[in-house]
Structure formats: structure tokens, C-alpha cells
Amino acid sequence: MNAPAPADGARLIYLMGASGSGKDTLLRLLRACLRGGEPVLVAHRYITRDSGDSEDALRLTDEEFLRRAALGCFALRWRSHGLHYGIGIEIDAWLSRGAAVIVNGSRAHLEQAHARYPALTAVEVAVDPAVLARRLAGRGRESAEQIAQRLSRATQAFPVPPGCRPLRIDNDGAPETAAAALLDIARAKLRPVVAWREQA
């Protein structure tokens, strides 16, 4: 089911990328660059694990997550690596007020997200596999076997629905460069910069 129609100028930016690609870092840097009163909002995620200090997320137990899902409290939700992830329906209120809303989504869930928000702007954060391996190992969250599984998934193609042309942000270098490109996309000022390009 589609979400309520957003106000003029409102945009949903659906950010995706492999675990360890740096999405949370980019979102943190983007927030620090926002000007006062600028209508760009980053939605937090609800996750059934401890998110720590590295990401903007709220932890829920499995029971609480499913209770909220049954009540229709999530605009988007998915399951990955044995965990539940959700984006709250508050984003519909933000869009109705003309905000540009950025959500930290899942590549595997893009089709469902596009079905609910057909006008969304999909943005993939891409990282070289060697860089991704170092980042995953450095955060100490997964075992070697889990890291290998995530690296394997990172190189797999994901379904892109008709009418959706994802943009791509390369995040191999300074994260400030990639964050600035993401902010340009959120502001809909897509000036030519080398950090992002439209997917072929």
C-alpha cells in the first residue's frame, strides 16, 4: 500500500549499502552540516539488537517490535541476519510537511520500499571489498565467518524495481566527501561531483 501523498518539495531518500559501507558515519556527518531550519531529516531505525554508539537506532525486543508491527507503527520493516529492522510511520508526517527524509534502508527491501514510496530516490553507498573487509573487522561486531558472509552478500546484485534508477556514492575515501554528496542529493542540488554517479 502506498503511503499518503507527500507535500510539494518533500522527498524520501532511501539510503542502502552493505554492512560496514559507512552509512551511519555519512548520516552523522550530514547532520553536522545541516543549516538551521533546513528541512532535511534523518529517520532513526528500530532494531532488535543493541545499536551501540555508532548508529542512530532504537533497540526493541523481538516482542515489542512485533507488537508495534501488528499496530501498524512501521512505514517500512524487514528482517536481516536474524534481526528485525523498522522505520517508523512518523516519516509520513515529516513528508506531509515538505521535508526531505533520509532513511537507512536495505538493498533487499528496495522493491517493497519503492512500492510504498514510488517517488523515492534510491542511493547506494559502495565500498571496495578490501576496504569493506577492514571496516567489518575493525568494528568487532561479527565473527570471521559472519564477515565472510557479509562480504559475499555485498557483491551480489539486488533487485531494482522498474522506474527506479539508484544513484551511487563511492565511500572508499574521505567520508566527508561522500557525506557532502549525500547532502547534495537530499537538497536536490545534484551538481556534478565525482563522488556520486547514476547507476548504469
Rank of each mutant, 00 (worst) to 15 (best):
L110T: 00
A5Y: 01
Q112A: 12
A188C: 01
D56N: 14
L26D: 05
R191C: 07
R68H: 13
F74Y: 14
N171R: 07
L136C: 01
G138A: 15
I89T: 15
R153S: 03
L120M: 10
L110R: 02
A181R: 09
I87T: 08
R97M: 08
W78N: 12
L167P: 12
R107P: 02
A178Q: 01
E111K: 14
R45Y: 02
Q149M: 11
L30W: 03
T48I: 08
G17I: 02
A200I: 10
H84C: 13
E145S: 14
I87W: 11
P175N: 05
S54Y: 07
S54E: 12
E142M: 01
S106C: 00
G163I: 07
S19R: 06
R107A: 05
R107Q: 03
R77E: 15
D53E: 15
Y117W: 14
G140T: 00
I102R: 07
A18T: 04
R49T: 03
A93Q: 12
Y46R: 04
P6C: 08
P118C: 15
L120Y: 00
R191F: 03
L190K: 04
R77Q: 15
F158W: 10
E142A: 07
Y14S: 03
M16L: 11
T61S: 15
R79N: 15
G86I: 13
A126M: 04
G20M: 04
E55C: 12
V194N: 08
P129K: 06
L83N: 15
R134Q: 12
G17W: 00
Q149D: 12
A5L: 12
V40D: 04
H109V: 05
R68Y: 11
R139A: 03
D62I: 05
N171Y: 09
P192E: 09
A186P: 08
S152I: 08
G105T: 00
P166E: 07
P4M: 09
L27C: 11
R35A: 15
L167S: 08
A195D: 12
S143L: 01
L76K: 06
A195N: 11
L41S: 10
P166C: 02
E63P: 00
D8H: 14
A93W: 15
N2G: 06
I91F: 11
A99H: 12
H81P: 13
I102P: 00
V194P: 13
V127D: 02
Y14K: 00
P192Q: 08
S96M: 13
A122L: 07
L15D: 04
Q146D: 06
A119S: 12
I87E: 03
R68S: 01
R141C: 09
R168C: 14
N104P: 11
E38H: 06
L183G: 06
R28L: 08
R168V: 11
D24H: 02
R135K: 11
A70C: 10
M16V: 07
A32S: 13
R107H: 05
D172R: 07
S51Y: 14
L41M: 14
R35C: 11
I87Q: 01
